[in-house]
């Protein structure tokens, strides 16, 4: 009653109502358009052969087999490096340093900046440091290492959240029983922090798979099947970029590759939010 009264009195309320619903509708429509377009054009080209066959004629025909292999190798290198460093840093920040300590503050701030660094700048850095200075050249290794630097902030932040969500009573009771901190960490805190860690892992994987700009001049363009980590390998996102920009007549395969990439990312994001909810749920039940 009060609402209808004020609405009829106040055209501003009506305008706001229309604007808010309008923007939500606009965003939803755009999203559906984008996704629908990709699914519509891409679906007919995706098949088992497409996923396994090597690309032919600069990618106009053939599939994306070697490209998927390169992508997973880059991802593997990225995780193998970023996981230990990320978890270690998160443990140190959450459990072994106070929020006031200089070391903790400096690390945190530098990670904040790192999280904002544009991917193309990571590309420049990776090219100068891993490819040139360390002499790794255009290779899967360089690309993976560059991505590792990039996903670290995400990984650290959500792992740290995971540790902070562990009730303080675990730490107190463990200390009161005279358990060492290593034991407390390994047997009590780490298992309890696993949901946060997994969310970080999944988000990091998502960011790594989505990345293009940082890989163009670190892991390179070569679309052959890589033979070692020191070979150049083309990531899926670079393949899409190359097909749509540099190869005329590559649109059909570009659509199909885009669809594959989008499905991978939707699956990853779904996993992340499922994990986040499931992890929270479990915590509520057990404590």
């Amino acid at each position: 009653m009060a609402e209808t009264l004020s609405r009829s009195q106040n055209p501003r309320e009506w305008l706001a109502f229309a604007l808010v619903w309008g923007s939500a509708a606009l965003v939803t429509a755009t999203f559906c358009w984008l996704l629908g377009d990709i699914v519509w054009h891409g679906l007919s080209h995706v098949s088992w052969t497409f996923l396994t066959a090597p690309p032919e004629n600069a990618g106009r025909r053939g599939g994306i087999g070697p490209i998927l292999v390169s992508t997973s190798l880059i991802l593997g290198v990225c995780l193998a490096v970023s996981l230990p460093i990320g978890i270690g840093t998160a443990v140190l920040l959450a459990e072994f340093t106070s929020d006031q300590s200089l070391f903790g503050r400096m690390t945190r701030r530098s990670l904040d900046v790192l999280a904002g660094v544009p991917s193309i700048v990571f590309g420049l850095f990776g090219n100068a440091f891993f490819c040139k200075t360390l002499g790794l050249g255009f290779s899967i290794l360089s690309g993976g290492l560059t991505l590792a630097c990039m996903v670290l902030p995400i990984l650290i932040r959500s792992t740290e959240e995971g540790f902070r969500a562990v009730p303080a009573s675990y730490r107190l009771s463990a200390a009161a029983l005279g358990l060492s901190r290593t034991t407390t960490l390994v047997h009590l805190l780490l298992p309890a922090a696993v949901p946060g860690l997994l969310v970080g892992l999944v988000l990091g994987v998502g960011r790594a798979i989505a990345e293009t700009a940082a890989l163009i001049f670190t892991s390179g363009y070569v679309d052959r099947m890589p033979e070692s980590l020191l070979d150049s390998g083309r990531a899926l996102s670079i393949h899409i970029f190359d097909l749509s920009m540099n190869v005329s007549g590559g649109d059909a395969n570009a659509y199909a590759s885009t669809l594959v990439l989008v499905i991978m990312l939707l699956a990853i994001n779904g996993t992340a939010s499922w994990l986040a909810t499931y992890g929270l749920h479990r915590k509520v039940v057990t404590v």
Partner: peptide, 12 residues
């Protein structure tokens, strides 16, 4: 590990 993570920005 934290030192590595913290110095990446400097390195960049």
């Amino acid at each position: 590990t934290a030192t590595i993570a913290g110095t990446i920005v400097l390195l960049i």
